[in-house]
Design a binder for these strands. Structure first.
Lengths: 137, 137
DNA sequence: TACTTAACGCAACTTAGTTGCAAATATAAA
DNA sequence: TTTATATTTGCAACTAAGTTGCGTTAAGTA
């Protein structure tokens, strides 16, 4: 095994290609989550949808992005920030979707899941739906 | 407007067809949720998938079934029972999916969602993932 | 600069879910 | 029981999200 292989194992294997940088840029510009459908649409002139899907997978593997399933069953991605919700398993946290404007984001509120007899809970996917600050007024 | 129309408005418009009865039978045989994909597969010889989708929609409109999105983004249906989780909005309740055997069911445990400043929460979709009693041992 | 291998684009594919329309059938009225 | 009629069904074709295989391109290393 060559040194470069070891480096790859340690550092992840993502090459900082033009496409990767462009995609990361979109996530750096916002704290909101972005749906894959939206990303494919926004990047339509810049890269193929296959590339979008594959880059998202890699960034997720590396712990740079995480994903969750939105109200509609579509996949959404958001940056991993250090935070998580204390009482939830696996450093997870709830997400919020505004039913009016569609704004979708991570929440770091604490929600505690009571133990359930004869079950082990290893993950909690919590999606709160309502109106965001902008849509309330 | 004829009397029959008024009756329809009051009672819902579901005719108790052979297909409706068959589909309801599947839900009466279990307290678990069933994915649409599974229903289409199980009923493949008895009705078209279009019919499965349309009956599920109608039974949901009438409050006989409810649905939620599973871990994989697929739609699952379950019977509406009188119960709900006290602290959740809109008479909703959490759902559980066993990551080993796939068993999926309604939970009526109480999970309270803390208020979030400047947001109104109108629905909470909570999916707990872990091991069921059968898969624990 | 040249080499190696990850990353990319494309086209074709899979799967969940939807739609339009003509034919079948459940229900109410006669 | 028969008739009328509006709902329900099946079919085939479609849409949309997401995946795969493969030949080509380009990033990172020597």
């Amino acid at each position: 095994m060559q040194l470069s292989c070891i480096k790859h194992l340690l550092m992840g294997i993502t090459r900082k290609t033009k496409s990767v940088k462009r995609l990361l840029q979109l996530f750096e510009q916002t704290n909101n989550a972005i749906s894959v459908v939206e990303l494919v649409k926004r990047l339509d002139q810049e890269m193929s949808k296959t590339t979008v899907y594959r880059i998202l997978d890699r960034l997720e593997d590396e712990g740079i992005l995480h994903f969750f399933i939105g109200k509609d069953g579509l996949k959404w991605f958001a940056k991993c920030r250090g935070e998580s919700s204390p009482s939830l398993p696996l450093n997870s946290h709830p997400h919020f979707q505004c039913q009016n404007c569609g704004k979708t984001e991570c929440l770091f509120i604490d929600i505690s899941i009571p133990p359930i007899a004869n079950f082990t809970i290893e993950a909690a996917e919590i999606l709160l739906i309502g109106l965001c600050e902008d849509c309330l007024s």
